[in-house]
Simulated scan of single mutants.
Amino acid sequence: MSINKTRGLLYWLARLLGDVNAVKRGRVGRRIGRRAAGRLTGRGLGRLFRRF
């Protein structure tokens, strides 16, 4: 298994554990909203820097 696959697996596992923790604490909506906002921000910045 390569380093990149191992890193990907660890990030996936961390995200899964964060989801479980959010469900446990009853903050799923907040987590989903923050994830969506992060994706939009990342896409916007990616498009901005791709043009220059």
Rank of each mutant, 00 (worst) to 15 (best):
A14D: 06
V23Q: 14
A22C: 04
R43M: 13
W12Y: 08
L48W: 15
V28I: 14
G8W: 01
K24R: 12
I32T: 15
G8P: 01
A36K: 07
R7D: 00
N21S: 03
R35Y: 06
L16E: 12
L17W: 02
V20M: 11
S2N: 08
L40N: 08
V23T: 09
G44N: 09
G33P: 00
L10R: 00
W12L: 13
L10A: 02
A37F: 11
G33N: 08
A37C: 05
I3E: 10
K24P: 01
G46D: 14
V23Y: 12
G18Y: 06
R25V: 05
G44H: 09
M1I: 05
A37Y: 05
G18V: 12
V20W: 07
R43I: 12
R35I: 05
A37E: 03
V20F: 13
R51N: 02
Y11R: 11
L17Y: 02
W12H: 12
F49R: 15
R30P: 00
A36G: 03
G29N: 14
A36S: 08
M1L: 10
G29K: 14
G46F: 05
G18L: 15
G44E: 06
W12S: 15
R30I: 01
D19W: 03
R7T: 05
I3T: 06
I3P: 01
G42S: 12
R7P: 00
A36T: 03
M1N: 07
